[in-house]
Design a protein around this nucleic acid. Structure first.
Lengths: 148, 148
DNA sequence: TCATATTGTTTTGATCTCAAACAATTGGTG
DNA sequence: CACCAATTGTTTGAGATCAAAACAATATGA
């Protein structure tokens, strides 16, 4: 069944040792999930929605604390928050410690987040379509043990 | 036990709805794995090693075919392959179809890959340290069902 | 009061990725 | 054989993401 000789390029690649690596399989899964997210929740990235969710759950949270929570540098947060503020979704308020900015959702931000949550629910359902509830819980548990 | 009032910034954030999302947990796990990879296999990224593994398993593979396998644009591959070639790990040979470049590991590339494989084996063991063999297989299977 | 630390910010640079346009080459159709 | 469409690798340009270093404003503690 050799289409040509032996060394010319196959159109279908042998995967080699790759599929046995947890990191590789994680990346494939994450890429698939992110792709679905992008088409399900247009106009905002998973990371940004994550920040809005954290601000929602922790109103007044500090920029540095949020940066630490999402494992980014302080300086990285500045630009991201500038964008979220420019969209009118969050506002910064000077804290009691006047070095800090407290972060708050605006009304528009709460509206957007409510809409995003509904879209995410559908997205999440599609992602887990081939998993039973027990399997889904098992996956999350196993992932947790990878992350420590 | 409230350290101050109620709205000032907590140092420990409430995670909100985030931990229930598969995509979020996937990202956390992948970040952890990639961090461990970076310290276990210094000098080359997971993606690059993946390409070397694919070239090893498919000697003479075409740039475009490889790009498709790793889900990157044709034009993205050029720079990456330039780097791998500059390191002396791969070479491009003009194919029978003279539009194409076949990709091959050099002797140095095979040496590097052999060393990397040993490091990756240890890395993989550390990543799966808290998983039994059955759990590890289960995780890979569940991830496969996410990726389709 | 004064030295030290923290916070947000600016600036700079590195990395990664895609899209569009292009020449060389191939394949198929007439 | 002649010609047109498709493919391949490449260049160029842009955007997104991120970190490190330096800085002023502010807080903290001796």
């Amino acid at each position: 069944m050799s289409r040509r000789a032996e060394q010319p390029p196959r159109e279908r690649l042998r995967p080699g040792a790759l599929p046995d690596l947890i990191g590789y399989r994680l990346r494939l899964a994450q890429q698939a999930v992110f792709r679905d997210f992008a088409s399900s929740v247009p106009g905002i990235s998973p990371g940004r929605v994550g920040m809005l969710l954290l601000i929602e759950a922790n109103p007044g949270v500090t920029q540095s604390t949020l940066a630490q929570a999402v494992q980014r540098d302080r300086s990285t947060m500045v630009g991201v928050l500038d964008q979220l503020e420019a969209k009118g979704w969050i506002e910064r308020r000077r804290g009691a410690d006047r070095r800090t900015n407290g972060l708050w959702l605006t009304r528009a931000g709460r509206l957007l987040l409510a809409r995003a949550k509904r879209a995410i629910a559908i997205h999440e359902q599609r992602v887990a379509a081939r998993l039973s509830a027990a399997e889904r819980a098992r996956l999350l548990e196993l992932l947790g043990r990878i992350s420590d």
